[in-house]
Nucleic acid binder design. Sequence first.
DNA 1: TATTTAAGTGTATAAATTACATTTATTAAA
DNA 2: TTTAATAAATGTAATTTATACACTTAAATA
Lengths: 231, 231
Amino acid sequence: MENYTEQDKFLLAVDCIIFGFDKQDLKILLIKRDFEPEKGNWSLMGGFLKKNESLDEAANRVLHHLTGLENVYLEQLQTYSALDRDPVERTVSVSYFALINLTEKTKINEDFSAKWFSINEAPPLIFDHNQMVSDAISWLRHSVATKPIGFELLPEKFTMKQLQSVYEVILGEELDKRNFINKINALDILIKIEEKDRSSSRKGSFLYTFDEVKYKAKVADGFTFKFMGVK
Amino acid sequence: MENYTEQDKFLLAVDCIIFGFDKQDLKILLIKRDFEPEKGNWSLMGGFLKKNESLDEAANRVLHHLTGLENVYLEQLQTYSALDRDPVERTVSVSYFALINLTEKTKINEDFSAKWFSINEAPPLIFDHNQMVSDAISWLRHSVATKPIGFELLPEKFTMKQLQSVYEVILGEELDKRNFINKINALDILIKIEEKDRSSSRKGSFLYTFDEVKYKAKVADGFTFKFMGVK
DNA sequence: TATTTAAGTGTATAAATTACATTTATTAAA
DNA sequence: TTTAATAAATGTAATTTATACACTTAAATA
C-alpha cells in the first residue's frame, strides 16, 4: 500500500468561538495575542492540530487548556482556507463553537490574558476571526431555534426567566413572558423541580432542568425541536 | 516573522456529495475506485487540496474535472478527521455538497467510471463516505426548508409539478398540490413565464423561473425563506 | 399586618396551515 | 367536427398555532 507521497501537506488549526451567558448578556471569550504578528491584539483561542488527535479532540484540548472545563457543548462549524488568512504561514483552520455556563465561576487560565466581552462590545480580531465570529453568531441564532441548546448556557438548574433571557439575547428581541412559558411547556422537555431560586425575588421562582432522556425519546419518536416565531 | 516550524502537517482532501434530480428521483453521483485499497468499490469524488488553492477552489476543480460543469451550487459541509479514516495515510477531508440539474444531459468524464445512483439504491461506500452522505442528506433536507435551493436541482425553467417533486423527494413525503402552489406563490420569488412545457400533458403547464434579484431584495428587506410544514 | 417585589397564570383574536373536488385547456381519436 | 382523455389550474372552510394582553399570588421585610 503506497503513500500519497506526491501531495501537499498543510498546517491545520482549530479556533474556538466560546460563548457564555451572564445574567442578561451573551459574551465571548477572547485572548490577547502575545507574539508577532498582531501581538497585543485580540484573537480567538486556537491551536494546531496534532498528529495523533482528531479535530474534535484538538478543540476540546484547546478549550480545556483555556478554561479547565470538560464536556462542554462543542460543535464544529466551518473550515477556513483562504491562502493568506494567516500571514505567517498557510494554515487551514476549523472553527468550533462552544457554549459555556458562566455562572459557575469559570476559571480562566491566566497564561492567555483572556477576557469575556459582551458580543456587542467585542474588539476587532486578528486574521479572519471576525468572520468566524459573525458566522458563529448566525449559526447560534439558527441553532437555538432548531436544537435544545439554550440550556447549555445555563447552570443545570435554571429559572424560566433565565431561559427566556438566553433566548432574548440570542434572538435579539424581547419575548412575551406568558407566551414564552406556554411555548416552552408545550415542548414538554423540562422537569420542574420542587425547589426555588430566591436570589431574584421574595416569592422565589421554581427551577427547571432539561430532561435529556425524555427529549431523546421524543426525537426517536419523530419529534423535532422548533422554537420559532415566539414574540 | 518566524514560521510555525514545529507543527505537524496534514494531507487535506475534499470529497463531493453530488446530488442530481431526474424526473422523480434524487440521485447521487459516485465513482468506482480504480486503485488499492478498496479498488473496485464505490466512492465519493474527491481530491487533494493543492498548495495554491482554497478548499472552495479545490471542490470546484474536482467537480469540474468530473462533470465539466462550472458555477454549480456548492456548499462546504463538515470536516472529517478521524485518525484512521483513510487507511493509506492520515488525511483530513472536507465534504462539499453540490446540486446539479440532471435534465440538461450532464456529461460525465469517463475516466472515473462514474454512475448516478438513486439515493435509496446507492451501494456501500469506502472509508467514512457513507457517513458523509448521510450527513449531507440531513443537511439537504434541512436546507431545502430554509433556503431557496430546490431550484438548483432543476433547469432554469421548470414547472410547479417538477418543483413539487423536488420537495417531495427530498422531504420524503407527498405534498398537496394546491397547498404547495399556494405556499410557493405566497413566497413571491418565482416568475411565471408565458411559455408552456408540453411534454407531460396536452394542456401543457406553465414554466417558472426563480427570481434571484427579487429574492435578494426581499432578504435585504428582512424576508427569510421558510418552507416548512406543508403537507 | 401592610408593603413590596417578581413570579405565575388564561383567554380572545389573528394568522397560518391543512383538507379537500371541480373546471379548464388541449390533443388525439372517433 | 365532436368526443374522449389527460394533466393543469384553481378557492374555501375548518383547524391549528401564534399573538396580544393584565391581574393575582407567594413570600420576605418593614
